[in-house]
Amino acid sequence: MDGQGEEHFIPVARLSDLDERGRAVVRVGEEWVALVQVEGRLHAVQQACPHRGGPLSEGDQDGCLLYCPLHAWAFDVRTGDSPTHPGARVRIYAVRVIGDEIQVAASGRLPVP
């Protein structure tokens, strides 16, 4: 997703920091955020699953769906919505890449229900 308007972006990592799956966990303010690459595009979602706090960055991925490793709750990394548990959502963050530097918007947002 691309930054919009006057978002304040902060540098969080470099492309070389992504693991072989195209993932990393970074700090955005007081929050841990999972960076997830899908088809060459980076997305940022809150790291903790809202169900039991499982580390989403460690879960399986099927396209744009990221599964919590604890109980397999799925979340769409583009929207933050869960197709498997209606009403469950994770915070998403705008991401941009400048050169090798990954920047994430300082304020995340919950998707509109």
Rank of each mutant, 00 (worst) to 15 (best):
I98L: 06
T84H: 07
Q4K: 15
H51A: 00
V90G: 00
L42T: 00
L18G: 03
D17Q: 12
E20K: 15
L42H: 02
W73R: 01
S82R: 11
T79S: 15
D100S: 10
P50I: 13
L56P: 05
H8M: 04
P83V: 09
T79R: 09
G108Y: 07
A94D: 11
A24T: 03
G54Y: 14
R96S: 01
P113T: 11
S16A: 13
V90N: 02
Q4N: 11
E101K: 10
V97K: 06
G80H: 15
A105P: 10
G40K: 09
R91S: 00
C64N: 06
L66F: 12
A44V: 01
I98E: 14
H85T: 08
Q61S: 02
A88C: 08
I10H: 04
I10F: 03
R52N: 03
A44S: 02
L35T: 00
G29W: 11
V12T: 07
G3D: 09
D81R: 13
R91D: 00
G5R: 15
G5D: 15
D2M: 15
L110P: 03
A44F: 03
P113F: 14
H71E: 04
P50V: 13
G40Q: 07
S82P: 12
R23V: 04
G3Q: 13
S107W: 02
W73H: 02
R23K: 14
H85R: 11
A94K: 09
L66I: 09
D60E: 15
S57Q: 10
L18H: 08
D62E: 15
